[in-house]
Design a protein around this nucleic acid. Structure first.
Length: 568
RNA sequence: GGGCCCGUAGCUCAAUGGUUAGAGCCGACCGCUCAUAACGGUCUGGUUGUAGGUUCGAGUCCUACCGGGCCUACCA
């Protein structure tokens, strides 16, 4: 049995995620996990909240909570909304877990033992009123190049110059507005990535399954020369910096940088799963404990690629320990909101919790799969959402299931008809379905989201085409046995659709499977349509499920546009 | 500034350098009546951003330009 480890980029703890976060990592990872499980693979799908860093501290302060409480609440909220979307994580962990503390500290220790960590003194801007060092982007001031007054510490949005916050004229803290700032020396740990360039390049060279996007980003950093990375920060919330198990002298008020510990949480979350009785985490992550035959697939937005192709590999390759590394890296672009970005503050865009207020999860899952931003940025529009739900789900799939099951209930007492044999129409159908099954399987296997949806839809369409030509409503009047063959074949199509659609629309698929009395969770079909469309036993009682996909009305769109923005 | 990506039908997107550039949606027409006013069929629709170049052959490769987007390591 093949074993597949799947991770999706860790959603940051800071508030509910929007549809772009879902579309660009968690949803495609879930679709792939469901597909491979149905095929019989041993799948482990791991995700977690990324809980450290300045934004978490600030969000907690704004909410009037201590950081630990804030993170606990929002971890649970993200967990619940993810489950409501049907995300089938085997474990949804927390980067603040004890397991991640231990493992992050372990990696730092091992890297230092191997001479890959150095202490250096940086000059950073300290805000006396905020009582904290300010990350570059939390400082604003006048651009020394062009005079723009709202330049951020790292870059001027007006002239695009890359800046050092120390050079800003009249700097101000974005957090408090305070101008009471000073430059202070601060000591930090650095991973000496310059020593690892050869190892990382050889590793990237060996990853032929990486997308061109992932490879080009990795090579860009390698070609320009890797920069040693600071892996500690002056913060209270995070993983303490220790040495040989004791607080590291001079680092008592510092923690590891969130980007150092977050990817390590992929492994630590698996340990959390393990400790909770899930199984042996080593079989998935240690090549000296059976992880050699694991295929590891990562899903992420393109902003994450450099961290997953350069800095995280630097951590685990630098350790010299036998860790499993990623085999396939699937990177996504952005889902935009009417050409712009999703924005909480401007009330633009739909976030995961409110999305479920207005439509069931399958509608979103289908839309975001069929319009996945996998090869370039894509734009959310209400028009496309309506088309995806009303045309694809309601008219093509939902109506097909409904029309044939209702017909069966009306003419055959809701029982799978017996008797008769497949004729030329069925033979043609078998050939078409076999071809489409092959296409659907190939696209899911290749993790091509849009093409998977396209192929699924083409498979659904075959059902309506078949019914149109076979016309059981005519046959029932003259040749009941022939009508029985048609109904039985079409009901088998219904059952088949439940199985192949399950990765994308699991809730509807389960309702359909239940309606025709089929087992759940589903098993992926073979490519032999003749066999797959002759599975339902004659005489089985079926029950038409309630309307699978309610259509979206113009009035709904008007209300939603008002509530969420867009279309204006 | 550096790097990367994109530009194809009204819209969203396809097309290992190889027939006449294809799908879905939208639109028009025809058919069907089992079904969620649903389904099926036919048709309309293109100087592939612009200008050059390489090639027997270019949407695809090269150059320049125009337009849009992303990344750039301390937001994550």
């Amino acid at each position: 049995m093949s074993r597949i480890l799947i991770t999706s980029a860790l959603p940051y703890i800071n508030g509910v995620k929007h549809l772009g976060n879902l579309a660009g990592s968690m949803l495609p990872a879930d679709v792939y996990a469901r597909f491979e499980r149905a095929r019989g693979a041993d799948v482990l799908y791991i995700c977690a909240t990324d809980e450290h860093g300045t934004p978490a501290e600030l969000a907690a302060a704004e909410a009037g909570q201590d950081v630990a409480t804030y993170c606990a609440i929002h971890h649970q909220a993200q967990h619940d909304v993810g489950r409501a979307f049907g995300l089938s994580w085997d474990w949804f962990g927390r980067s603040s877990s004890p397991q991640n503390h231990r493992l992050t500290q372990h990696f730092a220790q091992v890297l230092e033992d191997r001479g890959l960590i150095e202490e250096r003194v940086d000059k950073l801007v300290y805000s006396i009123d905020d009582k904290r060092f300010l990350p570059d982007r939390y400082i604003e001031g006048t651009c020394p190049v062009c005079g723009y007054e709202k330049a951020r510490g790292d870059q001027c949005d007006n002239c695009n110059s890359l800046l050092d916050p120390i050079d800003l004229i009249d700097p101000v803290s974005v957090i408090s507005g305070s101008r009471n700032l000073e430059v202070r020396d601060t000591r930090h740990l650095y991973v000496v990535q310059t020593k690892l360039a050869g190892v990382i390049r050889a590793w990237v060279d060996s990853k032929s399954d990486f997308s061109s996007l992932a490879r080009s980003i990795a090579y860009k950093h390698l070609d320009e020369g890797l920069i040693d990375r600071g892996i500690t920060r002056d913060l209270a919330w995070g993983i303490p910096v220790v040495r040989h198990g004791a607080p590291r002298p001079g680092f008592e008020t510092k923690v590891f940088y969130v980007w150092f510990d977050a990817p390590i949480e992929y492994i630590a979350a698996t340990q959390e799963w393990s400790d909770a009785g899930g199984g042996d985490w080593r079989r998935w992550w240690r090549t000296d404990a059976g992880a050699d035959d694991v295929r590891y697939v990562e899903f992420m937005g393109k902003d994450n690629v450099a961290f997953h192709t350069v800095s995280f590999p630097a951590t685990i390759l630098g350790s010299g320990e036998p860790w499993k590394t990623v085999d396939m890296l699937k990177a996504f672009n952005w889902l935009n909101w009417y050409g712009g970005k999703f924005s909480t503050s401007h009330k633009r865009g739909v976030f995961m919790d409110s999305a479920l207020d207005i439509l069931p999860p399958d509608c979103w899952r289908w839309y975001l799969t069929a319009n996945s931003p996998e090869h370039s940025d894509s734009a959310f529009t209400w028009e496309q959402l309506v088309a995806a739900v009303n045309r694809d789900l309601a008219d093509v799939l939902g109506n097909f299931v409904n029309r044939i099951m209702k017909f069966c209930e009306a003419k055959f007492d809701g029982v799978v008809p017996a008797g008769g044999a497949a004729g030329p129409l069925e033979e043609a159908l078998f050939a078409d379905v076999s071809a489409k099954l092959a296409e659907v399987t190939a696209q899911f296997e290749a993790i091509e989201m849009r093409k998977s949806a396209q192929a699924l839809r083409a498979l659904w369409v075959l059902g309506n085409e078949y019914l149109q030509v076979a016309a059981p409503w005519t046959a029932i009047k003259t040749d009941p046995e022939r009508a029985g063959v048609i109904v039985r074949t079409a009901l088998n199509l219904v059952a088949l659709y439940a199985r192949v659609s399950a990765p994308v629309i699991p809730f509807a698929a389960e309702a359909i499977a239940c309606g025709v009395g089929e087992a759940w969770p589903p098993v992926w079909p073979s490519l032999d349509a003749r066999a797959e469309l002759d599975r339902l036993p004659a005489g089985r009682k079926i029950a038409t499920p309630p309307v699978l996909f309610k259509k979206i009305e113009d009035a709904d769109v008007a209300v939603w546009s008002e509530r969420f923005g867009g279309a204006d």
